[in-house]
Design a binder for these strands. Sequence first.
DNA 1: TCGTGTGAAGTGATTCACAGCG
DNA 2: CGCTGTGAATCACTTCACACGA
Lengths: 188, 188
Amino acid sequence: MRAGRATVSSSQLATLFGFTDAQVRKDLAYFGHFGHPGIGYRCDELIAEIRRILGTDRQWTVTMVGVGNMGRALLRYKGFSAQGFRIVAAFDRDPRVIGSQIEGIPVFDIAQLGDIVRQQHIQLGMITVPAADAQQAADQLVAAGITGIVNFAPVALSLPEHVGLVGVDLTTELEQLAFSVANRTRSR
Amino acid sequence: MRAGRATVSSSQLATLFGFTDAQVRKDLAYFGHFGHPGIGYRCDELIAEIRRILGTDRQWTVTMVGVGNMGRALLRYKGFSAQGFRIVAAFDRDPRVIGSQIEGIPVFDIAQLGDIVRQQHIQLGMITVPAADAQQAADQLVAAGITGIVNFAPVALSLPEHVGLVGVDLTTELEQLAFSVANRTRSR
DNA sequence: TCGTGTGAAGTGATTCACAGCG
DNA sequence: CGCTGTGAATCACTTCACACGA
């Protein structure tokens, strides 16, 4: 299974990711017929299709609400832009950071959130404010017309149905690990 | 459903978390019979049982490998200790941070990882090194006898079966969101 | 021949519905 | 009565196995 090959079969992908070959074929076939019988999947085609499916073939404009420790760490993380996520603005309520730039990303007063999100056509928001402020931040993003939110605050947000939501709770991740260790079951 | 109440029923929990009442009962009954017919679940009992199930009734000793932006942000996050996760040591290869303390947590040379993990009986590890170094860091943790790893590096680690693994890939979270927005399906 | 895509069969999870207890 | 715990029924997902195309 050397690098640089032109095609890959469902069973090779299955071995690589720990699924079954039938599972790989079913999942891919669900999104369209881009396998080649007798050949497998052409790698360049497959990558392009997966990027299309995930939506990472387009550019997404993103904002960060909250530039505390976590927010700043994420702004400095270079991995987002590689997948087409462009962070164009950040917000905070602390006057000491408002007006500054972090990694070239301007930090605005959270009071201007609605205006700037609309002006810059920002589509996705990441919330890294304290738990107590997270719902309010989410409401402001939704009111400004955002279509999806990644929430890093350790609290469950309630959002209208039409807004996408992914939650990342770091304490929960550790709890999952403690659970899987304490009960010796694998989650992977 | 006011705060301070003594008991809670499966249907109340179901409404709160978006499950069905039967689901809540099946899941809880799986771990033991601590519901009271006609009454519901006593809140203090339920909390104690869940903490026992998750393993958060004990103290876990944790280490952080990598104190770049992400590692430092996580070390400064106060939420871990509340759930019984005590970060007792951090490691890096950069001489400029070795010997310093972050939030009272000493940063050691990664070469000392094995010795210190064994000395301090560290149980869980969090990896925030660059993707290229993550597998090596994981191998060192495993060799030192760690029982579980939270991996923040954007790479799939291969570990022996007996070591617990939870992965948090921030780019993947954004991709999930982009997918759920692009396809208008909710994941929650 | 090799390997996809897909109905059919099998397996696991969710929901229903109710006996039994406080 | 109210509500749990749990078999039975239902539903969804996974695996099997094979027709067909390259």
